[in-house]
Amino acid sequence: MTSWPSWPRPGKRVCEMSGLINLINKLSDLALPPLGQDIMAYLAFAVYVALIVGGGLTAVLARNLVRAMVGLVITFLGVAGMYLLLASPFLAFMQLLIYVGAISILILFAILLVKNTSSGEEAYRPGLPQAGLALVAAAGVAAIFGPVIALNEDLAAPPELPVETPLAELGQDLLNFYVVPFELISIVLLVAMAGGVLLAWDKRYRGKE
């Protein structure tokens, strides 16, 4: 039997918050031998990659912007699944909450507010020079980074099995060593919200005068 590189599984250090995940781990331990678990993990990875690539191509190539947004949501779901495979369920939850819940709704508002659905500017295909340049740029990036990733021996080394970091540890770090970035990001969010409201309300006042 050829040796599969053992796929990262959520370790035994599961925090108390995620009893359900713990239960699923135990059940899967009971149900499948390690090789079967590895095969299941590769299958799940393939499904998530299919979600990401399919959703991404829809988001980029769809002529209708609402459809593009739906493709983007599918991509977000695929990335959330990848976070689950990486034994970080909190990040997967945040991905669903922030990206799928908030940002895609913002993008939907943007699409609807600027009246740019199937009859707008995006209804026509980009010109040949533009599409060609886009493909050249993407192929350039892929040609640079693809071999770097594929040929790197450090990456090919058998990985450490990730253990799930307890949520309390993340919070401790956030309030001890990383307290300045933590506070800064709240300021950035506040300024962005205030600036957004200011920008969007300006003309309305002027129109009433």
Binding site: V60, V114, N116, E121, E122, P126, Q130, A131, A134, A137
Partner: peptide, 9 residues
């Protein structure tokens, strides 16, 4: 990247 360059809006 493809989308960023080829989108028009």
């Amino acid at each position: 990247l493809v989308g960023l360059i080829s989108r028009r809006t």
